[in-house]
Simulated assay, not measured.
Amino acid sequence: MKTTDLCDQFPDRVHVCEIFFQSFGKRKMFSGEIYTVRVFEDNVLVKQALETIPAGSVLVVDGGGSKKCALLGDRLAGIAVNRGLSGIIVHGCIRDSADIAQLDIGVLALGTNPRKSRKEGKGETNIPVSFAGVDWEPGHYVYVDEDGVIVASEQLVLGE
């Protein structure tokens, strides 16, 4: 579903993300139920979430906007593809961007950094996080395409 159509039909039910993320995955349009992880320069919980959240969902990673290392690379993105996830949104950086561009998944991030993250397992999962002017609540829905990113508290269906 196009974000423009959803904004037009549900203007009071959608929240538009204020940051323009870069798109790295092969899928430019994706949507799904939100699952969250809050970490800082440590991606252990990102991997755990990718291995456990349901197919069709979107993992939202609040990395605090850090650009000092990558929170996602081709191996973790491959886990998401193999498990049938719809996409990953990283408020931080990724690496292996050329490889991720070949994977059938949506991946948004602030940019790239070749440095890998720490592996300490620190952070929180499945909690509300806020960045880019949006509250990302587990169980809410995100819709992404070339025009932007929007969040709604419920699954939206055009023509309702």
Rank of each mutant, 00 (worst) to 15 (best):
S117L: 10
A55P: 09
L110K: 09
T3I: 03
W136G: 08
T4H: 04
D74A: 11
V81E: 04
S57N: 01
T36Q: 05
S31F: 13
G139N: 14
A70S: 15
T3V: 12
P114C: 06
S130F: 13
I94A: 01
P54I: 03
E51V: 05
M29F: 00
L59D: 03
L158V: 08
G121Y: 06
L72C: 01
I100W: 04
A132N: 05
K119Y: 00
I53C: 04
E33F: 00
R38A: 12
H140T: 09
I94T: 04
E33S: 01
G78L: 03
V151G: 09
I88V: 11
P128V: 14
Q22K: 13
H140G: 14
G64Y: 08
G106H: 09
E137D: 12
Y143T: 05
G123N: 14
T125D: 12
Y141N: 06
I89C: 05
I19M: 08
R118T: 08
P128W: 13
S153Q: 15
V61G: 08
M29K: 13
S66G: 07
V134N: 10
R38N: 01
K68H: 03
I88W: 04
A109W: 10
R27I: 03
P114I: 08
E51I: 11
E146P: 01
E146Y: 06
V144I: 15
K2N: 10
G84Q: 02
V142M: 06
N43R: 09
D12M: 11
T52M: 02
G78H: 04
A55N: 07
